[in-house]
């Protein structure tokens, strides 16, 4: 029987994600590198108490709407709807404004494990590659070293960093075929190929599904063996219920700017000395 990893809908692709699952979410910070429609489907399914593994905590759909992104949801859809119990993340907050993750953190509604970006990538890769961990020099002499085994190898000190394995990895690629082979586009590759295979089930959201054989074997980035499901984005973004208008987007931008000012004002009150 022909291998066929293609599923017809985003809801079907995430149907077996349950409460309390550990999910990896690909991308960097920009929404175009993110599996936006898989995140929407996870939100629609209503699952909660998730442990998420991602580079950032998202900016929110209104920010990306401003930039004209056709699929504007990022990690923020799970953050603002309080679906996350614990976040394993490298860049949780923004220097520019108070994001929704920071609000939850301050309210004690989410746990955080902050990991240096390269260490996060390598811990994920370790899980994918079947390793029991990796020795990493980054973090020695900082809070990152707390409670970790240390080892001197060839005169240099390292920390033992353990693999991060997920139940589901949600990734975004440019093109995929029915075997799950994937190629990416530009700088939207980032964590997506790293996370593929680092979970029990890897689900790839692609811009386009192509015939088997259409992808140049010399250029396939993610071998299909790492991928369990492939689901395609619609060619044209549907008009969504509750779509954000330009006016709302501008209001939202103003709100962010006010929050930055407010945060600086509070900081001054507390006597912090930096800008």
């Amino acid at each position: 029987m022909p291998i066929n990893k293609i599923v017809d809908s985003f809801d079907e692709a995430v149907a077996d994600i349950e409460d309390g699952a550990v999910i990896m979410v690909g991308g960097f910070g920009t929404v175009v590198s993110t599996p936006s429609l898989l995140l929407e489907a996870v939100y629609r399914k209503g699952v909660k108490n998730l442990t998420t593994v991602s580079n950032s905590s998202g900016f929110g759909a209104d920010v990306w709407k401003l930039q004209g992104a056709p699929f504007p949801e990022d990690m923020d859809i799970l953050v603002r709807n309080e679906r996350i119990k614990k976040a394993i993340v490298s860049a949780p907050v923004s220097a520019l404004y108070v994001n929704n993750f920071e609000k939850l953190l301050r309210a004690g509604k989410v746990e955080i494990e902050m990991v240096p970006q390269g260490t996060l990538a390598e811990r994920i890769r370790a899980a994918k590659a079947g390793l029991g961990g990796v020795y990493v020099p980054v973090g020695i002499g900082t809070v990152v070293e707390e409670e970790k085994e240390k080892k001197i190898i060839d005169g240099r000190e390292y920390l033992l960093e353990l693999p991060i394995k997920a139940d589901f990895a949600l990734i975004h690629a440019h093109k995929g075929d029915r075997w799950g082979n994937l190629v990416y586009r530009g700088t939207s590759r980032t964590f997506n190929p790293t996370m593929s295979g680092a979970a029990r089930v890897t689900i790839a959201e692609v811009d386009e599904i192509v015939e088997l054989g259409a992808l140049d074997p010399e250029c396939i980035v993610t071998p299909g063996v790492y991928v369990d499901r492939v689901v395609a984005r619609p060619k044209v973004a549907p008009t969504q219920e509750g779509e954000i208008t330009d006016h709302q987007a501008l209001e939202s931008k103003k709100r962010f700017e006010n929050e930055i000012q407010e945060s600086i004002r509070r900081a001054k009150e507390r006597g912090m000395r930096d800008e």
Partner: peptide, 9 residues
């Protein structure tokens, strides 16, 4: 709260 990001690496 802060963001380590890639700075440590």
């Amino acid at each position: 709260v802060g963001t380590i990001g890639g700075a440590m690496d």
